[in-house]
């Protein structure tokens, strides 16, 4: 089913999403990948505050190519999510409501998603040029020293994603392998 969703998410919006739904996202989302996750995680473990408000927000696992003068952002597709698994349950317990990436998640992440009513989306891996066209604004808001791995605030319009794991733990990757 095609769905049009505006960020921030809510528990109600998330509960309406089912594994296999095609979703067009609009609004603010944040980018973070390996190094930013590690830094946020270590900061939170030490009791410090992190530069983004996780509550009801979405993190996109992205490290874009540099933008040219006339571009909002460079190529901007998803990176493999499983490398963020170690850090993700803590972020979910702290209010994170959605993630965009590609590939499998471990059981600890799925359990934390069910507990906190969160959703995991996949964007199409290797379609970074196409996806960049749906990003209308981009600015680095933290961890500038990490280069491509800095945290960015993006404004997206009709950004195309697929619900892979929903808030009940249904997993599209497993569903398609069982039916093949």
């Amino acid at each position: 089913m095609d769905q049009y969703i505006t960020t921030p998410l809510t528990t109600q919006k998330v509960e309406e999403l089912r594994a296999g739904d095609y979703v067009y996202l609009s609004g603010i989302i944040y980018t973070a990948r390996d190094a930013a996750h590690q830094r946020m995680y270590e900061t939170m473990e030490e009791g410090g505050s992190i530069p983004i408000d996780l509550k009801n927000n979405i993190i996109y696992y992205l490290g874009p190519t540099p933008e040219k003068e006339n571009q909002v952002i460079g190529s901007a597709g998803p990176t493999t999510s499983s490398r963020m698994d170690k850090y993700t349950p803590l972020l979910l317990d702290s209010g994170l409501k959605g993630m965009i990436g590609k590939g499998k998640r471990n059981q600890a992440v799925i359990d934390a998603m069910i507990k906190n009513k969160a959703v995991y989306f996949a964007a199409v891996g290797g379609a970074g040029a196409l996806l960049s066209k749906r990003i209308k604004a981009s600015k680095v808001i933290a961890y500038d020293d990490l280069g491509t791995e800095a945290i960015r605030e993006l404004f997206v319009e009709d950004f195309p994603v697929i619900v892979v794991i929903d808030s009940e733990g249904n997993n599209l990757y497993e569903i398609v392998m069982q039916s093949s």
Partner: peptide, 16 residues
Amino acid sequence: ENLDIASADFIPICQD
């Protein structure tokens, strides 16, 4: 479509 956009608008095919 991604390949078309990459060559027409000079955007790398993939961010990696």
